[in-house]
Design a protein around this nucleic acid. Sequence first.
DNA 1: CTGAAAGCGCTTACAG
DNA 2: CTGAAAGCGCTTACAG
Lengths: 349, 349
Amino acid sequence: MPRTTPQHRKVTLADIAQGCDVSRATVSLVLRGSPLVNSATRARVEAELKRQGYVYNRAAANLRRRTSSSIGLVVNDLGNPFFAEFAAGADEALARAGYVTLLGNTGESPERQQAVLTSLVEHGPAGIILSPAEGSDGERVLAAVGMHTPLLVFNRELPDDDGTHRWDTLEMDNEHGARLATEHLLGLGHRRVAFFGGHRDSSSVEQRRRGYLGAMRDAGLAVDPGWLIESAPTRLEAARQTGALFARDPAPTAAVCYNDAVALGLMLGLTRRGRRPGEDFALTGFDDVAEASVCVPPLTTVAVDPRGLGRRSAELILQRLGNPDTDTAYTIAPVRLVVRESSCPPASP
Amino acid sequence: MPRTTPQHRKVTLADIAQGCDVSRATVSLVLRGSPLVNSATRARVEAELKRQGYVYNRAAANLRRRTSSSIGLVVNDLGNPFFAEFAAGADEALARAGYVTLLGNTGESPERQQAVLTSLVEHGPAGIILSPAEGSDGERVLAAVGMHTPLLVFNRELPDDDGTHRWDTLEMDNEHGARLATEHLLGLGHRRVAFFGGHRDSSSVEQRRRGYLGAMRDAGLAVDPGWLIESAPTRLEAARQTGALFARDPAPTAAVCYNDAVALGLMLGLTRRGRRPGEDFALTGFDDVAEASVCVPPLTTVAVDPRGLGRRSAELILQRLGNPDTDTAYTIAPVRLVVRESSCPPASP
DNA sequence: CTGAAAGCGCTTACAG
DNA sequence: CTGAAAGCGCTTACAG
């Protein structure tokens, strides 16, 4: 199995110029589609380009023109379907706009995030889309990104001690999503509704709780403090916390869960205690992960269209490139409720 | 909310050189860690680097040195968790080796694949990892990639009319995986085992069928041609084909499914016909998608460690960069069987 | 140990 | 309409 030995030396503008007896400048103009070039000359050049199998060296062009044709995309965890879909959407929109995506994966570690950002910036992206690792700090991020590269922060709030908004932001409408879920449960007739899971100090938990509390207040219902139950946002921890729901009497008949992972854990916990989720206890999730539609019972949840968010993030950063000096924007993406069997009416007493 | 206006003009080597009264050459040597530089000079330069907030322009360096610090990673569909995990693994290993990942997503379209490859190549990656879109053609791919950029083809065979192996290949051990699944079912006591799903002309179907047939042969069992059932590799089509399993009498008591999607569809089809998968019919999948562990019954399947494959692909392409002239390699990654409830013993008659 | 000079592959005023 | 020349930000022999 012989390997075709690559011919070294790639073909450059100079080779083409020489090959059809024009200057490099003329070849460059042809390449960039300038109307100045005589059509006969253009044809000759284009033929030679094809004949020699020329491939454009965009890095060299970018250096000379002081432009960039890449955007950095840094996510916490590509293995998480939410971020994978987000990346797919962003890449799609960036590619369509002629940019290539420089990928970075932080694995939720602020240290790796610093390393990734530092490395990315050296490659000179026109902008960076960042979904910050948990616990990252705005100052450190900005130190790595520098003042020259526009930054769009997605999904999580990045602590901004400085106070001036030095980056664009894209978040989903956590508050509204939780409100929708809560109103849905109330509409089914529930009166004692808990908010289950998540740590209070997370910005998204705080936003979702706010939506829940608002809906309860608007319905004229008092919230028992014991109905606000914390847990790590994982299936296992949520299952462990199930008991806390039934510490009070009367106990809640329904729960708005922080996210789908928590909701799936709660389902498990309920089942272990002999309760039947979707029959004698109602619950909702947040995210609409793939599993939500196939678990038993299927999970009512708030869908956030991660692919659409990815596209949106690309649009926002590209827009920023065109208007470097306008005020930074804080964009909130809509969410919608997907009703499935897990949100049942209250069991008749 | 005023936006901090970015100071234009980034700081360059020349700024640093001027700032501490040395030549650009010396600054460059410091940057690249040359031992030639006097330690006092080095310290001065490093201080100035920090003071001015210098960021290395890797593109310029790459141009001058005729090197590259990026690798293209082109996958069919980032939204598919398998490829997302693969990308995460590849990116992790590439980042560790000092490369940045140029992402490309083809959405399973050979046309987009050509566009993506053409664009990527202009950014001068040191190599490309490609999971080909279904129906892509080796000649076209190679025309876009060119002879200068090493190519690693992952997951699917790329038709190679030429016959000389012009790219490295990484595949998972489809044959062995299907053999493991088949042997497992035989070990449980099944004698009439079908191979269910997938199109015969797909290379991975062909490989998996070979493993199944080998295990049957080794067990001294004849395979009824009616046990080889084709279907599109989707859940819906698989569900529709369920009837074909029971066209013969006696019917199979178990099926090795082409992949998890097919297996999940078959479960659905069985249930619709009043059969209980995992109780009166045994089946296995392939891939170990997230759903496999949570469906009812949980699915026995062949796990392929996509993240590990991603890392491996990175290692292979980096290895190729170091040895451009050695023969191309055909690497087969191991798989393992994950036993769950869907593979039950045959129902006693 | 340090600097002057040439050059990576492009683009862009500026002449003509 | 086309070419000569300068330059993007680096690196690397080559002198000294």
